[in-house]
Nucleic acid binder design. Structure first.
Length: 490
RNA sequence: GGGUCGUUAGCUCAAUUGGCAGAGCAACGGACUCUUAAUCCGUCGGUUGCAGGUUCGAGUCCUGCACGACCCA
């Protein structure tokens, strides 16, 4: 029974306290991290003594007792090292105390560095101290923690037990910091805009609602930072970005988590063509930082991220994939053609139909990086009309590995057109589309004072992290994915 | 929301047709001064996710529920 495992450790804890040993001391000074010791003493040959002492600390992850001498493995954030302890060196009592440590305890040791006859770099313990007593056993040392529900609910254990998980989150962090450096170096200003908004705008999605007690108003968790970032461009902050959480009140899947991380970038005097080049460079730079290469493997597919990426028109791509002819054709024409080909279509409006056909027939095949451009206007209420076309806007989405990674526009800066687009969205809402965007008078007020020609892009950070870590599920790149609440384990 | 699959010891997994719930690791006790998944001997550890039902007998079959995974919308 688990209680007895904990009980045994509580007994040990009591025994330590009775001996005057603090099982949770406040601090411990180490001379080196374990990684530093490994690097510094790499020259030692088999059986060779360095004659130098180090003080290291870490979690006890293995204990191999052989009577009056033992080998222990300690792990810290930089690596793992073997420690040798003997009763002869430590004295009987301290040796026995060390050997009665449990896997999972944090321990600090001081001692000489040497290499064993078998070639393992080892610290010979001259002195040691307990730094933190673990009361619960760690997951099994060899198989680790596999139960996917336990891994998500108890990520700390997942990280302790599974090295690949630690590495994935390190990669994600490297990717994000490379993005900051990239944008900072190009003169983009990092800003923070409200996550709680009176109107959740900037994307087609259902929001979470919350309530501010003192003001007695409902606020929405943002579905995108877009409309606030554009206000900044209007105000003269010509290059801005925000990298942070947004929230969409939708189902959970391998590609969706209710809270997710998005990078939005706005650049005055750029446009969607400019954003295409920007995202190519940004993805290459962050791939180099995270993976060390622009060639990656994602779910058995070899992907070459080096630019230039293929650029295709949305409508043409759908026409080629389906054999339908869509250019300048009405919704009922599309339905008529589809029926002839035996393609069933849901009750969507014109733009949504094309998007639906795209998602069904084109998107899964977009393994190599592909920019899909020129979207129907009715599903893109914040993007500028494309000159010389009927009902298309300057918008593109980026697909890699069959997954949507980014969405970008030449931003709509005509306030009269923007108002008309919001009105269209309101009509859709009244017709029952609860994902339709809201009329945002405050945003229009700002826009009516003039926004320069601007390009903007939103990049799904979690999705990109999936690609860079070869993860099949978004939950593998989110430290604490959203799960249904469950009774706390005792 | 629908479909399929899963839930057995702290962890990783077994259990034949419905017939005594098991192993490895961990824990506990013992032997062992170059091990590294240490080894060897012994011991402990179970409300088989929860609630019902069928049956002489249920981990196994049936119903409902909870949680999760995958697919679809």
């Amino acid at each position: 029974m688990k209680e007895s495992l904990i009980q045994a450790r509580l007994e040990k804890l009591k025994g330590l306290r009775e001996k005057g040993i603090d099982p949770y001391p406040a601090r411990f000074s180490r001379s080196h991290t374990i990684g530093e010791v490994s690097a510094h003493f790499s020259f030692l040959k088999e059986g060779e003594q360095s004659g130098e002492q180090v003080t290291v600390a870490g979690r006890l992850v293995a204990l191999r007792r052989m009577g009056r001498a033992s080998f222990l493995d300690l792990r810290d954030g930089s690596g793992k090292i073997q420690v040798h302890a003997s009763a002869g060196r430590l004295g009987e009592e301290r040796y026995q105390e060390l050997c009665s440590s449990d896997i999972g305890d944090f321990i600090g040791v001081r001692g000489d560095v040497f290499r064993t006859k078998m070639g393992e770099l080892t610290v010979e313990v001259a002195e040691w101290s307990l730094l933190s007593k673990a009361l619960r056993p760690l997951p099994e040392k060899w198989h680790g923690l596999k139960d996917i529900e336990l891994r998500y609910r108890h990520r700390s254990l997942d990280l302790v037990a599974n090295q690949a998980v630690r590495e994935a989150f390190v990669r994600r962090s490297r990717m994000v910091s490379a993005m900051h450096r990239f944008l900072d170096a190009r003169g983009f200003l990092e800003v923070e805009t409200p996550m709680m908004q009176p109107i959740a705008g900037g994307a087609t999605a259902r929001p979470f609602v919350t309530h501010h007690n003192a003001l007695d108003i409902d606020l929405y968790l943002r579905v995108a930072p877009e409309l606030y970032l554009k206000r900044l461009v209007i105000g003269g902050l010509e290059r801005v970005y925000e990298l942070g959480k947004s929230f969409r009140n939708e189902g959970v899947s391998t590609e969706h988590n209710p809270e997710f991380t998005i990078l939005e970038i706005y650049e005055a005097y750029s446009d969607y063509e400019g954003m295409m080049s920007l995202v190519e460079e940004l993805v290459v730079t962050s791939a180099q930082a995270a993976v060390g290469s622009t060639r990656i493997t994602y779910q058995e597919n070899e992907i070459d991220l080096s630019p230039p990426w293929q650029r295709i028109g949305l409508v043409q791509a759908v026409e080629e994939a389906t054999g339908l002819s869509l250019d300048g054709v009405t919704e009922s024409d599309i339905r008529k053609q589809a029926r002839k080909k035996g393609i069933e279509l849901p009750e969507f409006s014109h733009g949504k139909l094309i998007e639906h056909l795209f998602e069904r027939f084109v998107e899964p095949g977009l393994i190599q990086p592909t920019i899909v451009k020129d979207y129907p206007m009715d599903i893109s209420p914040l993007a500028k009309r494309k000159q010389g076309t009927e009902g298309l806007v300057e918008r593109f989405e980026l697909f890699i590995g069959g997954v949507e990674i980014a969405n970008a526009f030449t931003e709509l800066n005509d306030p009269i057109d923007q108002r008309a687009r919001f009105e269209d969205q309101e009509r859709l809402r009244e017709a029952g589309d609860d994902e339709a965007q809201r009329m945002d008078e405050d945003f229009l007020f700002a826009l009516e004072h003039g926004m320069p020609p601007t390009g903007g892009i939103g990049i799904g950070i979690d999705r990109l992290a999936m690609l860079f870590t070869d993860s099949p599920s978004i939950r593998d790149v989110i430290l604490f994915p959203t799960l249904r609440a469950r009774e706390v384990r005792r």
